[in-house]
Amino acid sequence: MKPKIGVFSFTSCEGCQLQILNLEDELPILLGQIEFVNFREAMSEKGEDYEIAFIEGSITRESEIEELKKIREKARILIAFGACAHLGGVNNLKNFHPQGSWLPSVYGRTDLFSDTIPTKRVKDVVPVEFVIPGCPIDKKEFLRFIQGLLLNIQPRLPDFPVCVECRSKGNICLVEEGKWCLGSVTRAGCDAICPTYREACAGCRGFVEEANIESLCNILMQNGLSKEEIRDKFRLFNGLEPIDL
């Protein structure tokens, strides 16, 4: 029996679903082993007989809470995939502003979306078995996850920070150059794609365990960032994580 998979989207850009579809070479082979029964971005059928549910997006409306709970009841395994589902993602930024105050600057009008609530992570609403982090997710990691499922093993995320992958590629360190980067406290697995293109790691994959935030904060202040600027950098993806600056 092929495992039946549903892919569901909540508040997000839906770019992580797209990453699954970007597995162009692997998907046809993979479909011999698994079956998608519900995957709005890829198919029109809406099967309800999934046992594994992939959840994309954060929860920002009451109606989404109910919807998510219904999925949880049906799914044996529920996976939060992508930074929005895992961490709240950039959507969490609105939590730091008075409710609705951001409507004019985002939408140019104030009469929309009056029913939104402060952003929640998936795990704030229902129990989550696994997480595939990243903004967007790494498609290879999704693939490894599916393979783990087929091999009946718990897929393991790297427990080391982005610096390991970044340095292994012989990159020049942005922090060494006096800039900011959160790679030293962020879980690896992205192959350090941002710093490889000379763009700072913004922490989209969440913190490593026992991240030494205090030390990084001191370093970034020496590089000329204010505490507020550093807090804003952390908040972009990790605003809902407990950070003590």
């Binding site: 070479d25 011999g32 393979q147 087929l150 920070p161 610096c163 390991v164 030293s184 030390s215 990084l216």
Partner: peptide, 26 residues
């Protein structure tokens, strides 16, 4: 920070981990 930069750039560091990777065809 336990970021591992020092052990990656060191010319006399040789520790490793072994990892399995499976093709999509399983």
């Amino acid at each position: 920070l336990s970021c591992g930069a020092c052990i990656i750039v060191c010319p006399t560091c040789y520790c490793f981990d072994a990892v399995d990777e499976v093709c999509p065809d399983m």
